[in-house]
Simulated assay, not measured.
Amino acid sequence: MPELSVLAWLLLAIAALLVGLSKTALPGSNTISVAIFAALLPAKESTGALLVLLIVGDAFAVWSYRRHASWPVLRRLVPTVLAGLVLGALFLAVASDAEVRRVIGVILLAVIALTLARRHLTRHRQEQPETKARQHLQSGIYGTLGGFTTMVANAAGPVMSMYFLASRFSVKTFLGTAAWFYCVVNLVKVPFSVSLGLITGQTLLINAVLLPAVVAGALAGRALVAKMNQSLFDRLVVLLTIGGAIYLLI
């Protein structure tokens, strides 16, 4: 078990609580968890420890919203996300921590700008059904970026939040689609993470201590969603995504 102060453990517990909350109510808020873990643990340990907690949160999210996923969207994402995961693993092997953070930050800001511009252009006119070519192009861009960012920094949340937001999902469809997406992607990342030395016996001990906080956050998120309307949900997603991008840049 790493030697950490009481304050450090308290901050890690808050980060774990936010992991659970992000999975069942506030997508993107786990960027704060990424920041806390990276500040308190060595880079490799922080990534591996957080991945296991994210998988626990995924299990609660799937249990809560398993009937609300958009399966056509998920099927379109599979090949591009896998490509992004491979690119991310290759990038991790050659890039420094600073380079990783800056690249992801720039990607997130570009995705936010693209998504908000698209929504603004369609707000005051009748939106036409998307063609299959456009759907595949959009899923290709977001899927590749999502796979890349999740592999290098557990930071796919903001990218995929913008994709699901652009798809104009309802709150529960958004959360259900995200739940299945992250559940599968994070499980696929486990062998990569083990082979890269990101998941170790020490990170699993940290997970054992922080697991109750993830569960508490997930249950609190389920209660919060029942009181949240669509407009508030969309705004929170955008704000949390912008915050995550700025954090990665600075």
Rank of each mutant, 00 (worst) to 15 (best):
Y142A: 15
G217T: 06
T200G: 06
Y182M: 05
V190R: 05
A69M: 04
A226Y: 00
V94G: 05
H68R: 12
N186D: 13
L74V: 10
W9S: 09
G244H: 11
R76E: 11
A178R: 01
L82I: 12
Y247M: 09
E130W: 04
V237C: 07
F233S: 09
K23R: 15
G217Y: 08
L10N: 11
V56R: 01
K189N: 11
W63V: 00
L92V: 05
R118L: 06
V34E: 09
G20Q: 02
G217K: 04
F164N: 12
T131F: 02
A153D: 14
H136I: 10
A216S: 12
K172I: 01
R101P: 00
S64D: 05
L26S: 15
G20P: 03
T144A: 14
L51P: 02
N30A: 13
R102C: 04
G244S: 11
L109V: 11
Q202H: 08
G84I: 10
M160F: 14
R134W: 13
E99S: 13
L17F: 15
E45D: 14
V100Q: 12
M162W: 09
G157C: 05
F192R: 07
A89R: 12
D97L: 04
L240R: 08
S231G: 10
F60P: 01
L198Y: 09
T80P: 01
L11H: 04
S70V: 08
T177G: 11
S64H: 06
H124N: 15
I199F: 06
V62E: 01
P72T: 15
S167M: 07
A179W: 00
G146V: 03
T122C: 03
A133D: 09
T131Y: 00
H136L: 14
G176L: 02
I32H: 04
G146S: 15
I36S: 13
C183R: 00
T115Y: 03
I107N: 06
H120R: 11
E3H: 08
A110K: 03
T150H: 08
P2G: 09
L54I: 01
L121T: 09
Q138P: 05
L53D: 04
R76D: 07
F148Q: 08
L10Y: 07
G140A: 14
N229H: 14
Q230I: 06
Y65L: 02
F192S: 05
R101A: 08
V6S: 13
S139V: 12
A220P: 00
R235N: 14
G157P: 04
L114Y: 07
M162R: 10
G28P: 00
G157V: 08
K23I: 00
V185I: 12
P2D: 09
V81Y: 05
A245S: 13
P158E: 15
I250A: 10
H120K: 10
I36K: 06
V237N: 06
A16H: 03
F91D: 01
V171S: 12
A93T: 05
N30M: 07
I14R: 02
A218F: 02
S195L: 11
Y247W: 13
V184N: 02
V111C: 05
L12D: 03
R66F: 01
R66T: 00
G57F: 00
W71M: 14
S46H: 07
T47Y: 07
I107P: 01
V103S: 07
V52M: 05
A39T: 13
V225M: 10
L210D: 10
A218G: 11
L137Q: 14
H68C: 06
